[in-house]
Nucleic acid binder design. Structure first.
Lengths: 105, 105
DNA sequence: GCTTACGGTTAGTCATGGCTTACCAAGATG
DNA sequence: CATCTTGGTAAGCCATGACTAACCGTAAGC
C-alpha cells in the first residue's frame, strides 16, 4: 500500500532477489523457487509480502499463479524519495542563514 | 554505500523517523533524540547505520555533532528503482509475444 | 584545575521475522 | 474417479537486530 510497506518488503535480501528475478517477466511460483536456495513455501511467503506491499500482482492460470512486477508500487516509493529533494535543500538554505542566530540545537 | 544498505537502513520505522526529522535541516544528536521515544544511545546507533549507508553525514562543531541528509545516498536508491522500468516493460512485451510458445514456466 | 554537556561504544535482553516441515485445497491428467 | 501438480497456510525453531543501562573520552564553562 504505502511506501513504508514497499521499503520494508524490499529490505530483505531474498525478497529483493525474488523481486528482481521478475525483471525478466512474469513467473510461476515454482519457477521462481527453482532459482532460489530456499524452499517453495518460503518463496510463497515472500510473494505474499511483496503483494500486500503493492509491488507485485498475480494472474491465476489453472493451478499456476503468475507473479509480475507492479509499477505502481515502485512509483509511490519513488515519490517518497523525490520528496526529500526540495525539502532538504530549502532547509539547508535556512540553516545557513540562521547559522549565527544560535537557535536551540 | 550501495542501494542495498540504503534500503536496509530505511526499512526500520524509527530510523526512517530520524531520517525524516532531518528534512527540517541539520540537527545535533540530542536534538534528534528529544523528539524520539527512545534513548539517546539508540538514536546514536541508528545514525551510525544511516551514515554507513551513505544517507547522512556529520559535521562536528565542538562536542556537538550535526547530522544532515546526504542526497547522494538517495540518488543511488532512485537509480535502483528507475532501473526496473525499461527492464520490466521489455520483458512484458516479450512475454506477450511468447505467450503461445508454451515455454517452461 | 574541576565539573558539566555531548555523544559514541559495549554487554546483555527481548521481540521480530525468515525458514522448514507438515498439511490441505483445487485444477490438470490419465 | 484416482493421482499428480501447483501453491497457499500453520506451527515451531532460530538468528537478526533494536533497545536500555552502564561506561568512557572529549570539549565547554565556571
Amino acid at each position: 500500500m504505502a511506501y513504508q510497506d514497499a521499503i520494508t518488503a524490499l529490505s530483505d535480501p531474498r525478497r529483493r532477489a525474488i523481486f528482481e528475478s521478475l525483471r525478466a517477466g512474469p513467473k510461476s511460483v515454482a519457477h521462481i523457487a527453482r532459482d532460489q536456495p530456499v524452499s517453495r513455501p518460503a518463496v510463497s511467503q515472500h510473494l505474499k509480502v511483496l503483494q500486500s506491499a503493492g509491488l507485485v500482482d498475480v494472474t491465476a492460470q489453472g493451478t499456476k499463479r503468475f507473479y509480475q512486477i507492479r509499477h505502481q508500487g515502485l512509483t509511490t516509493l519513488r515519490h517518497y524519495i523525490d520528496s526529500f529533494w526540495q525539502d532538504t535543500l530549502d532547509a539547508f538554505a535556512n540553516h545557513v542563514t540562521e547559522n549565527q542566530t544560535k537557535k536551540e540545537n
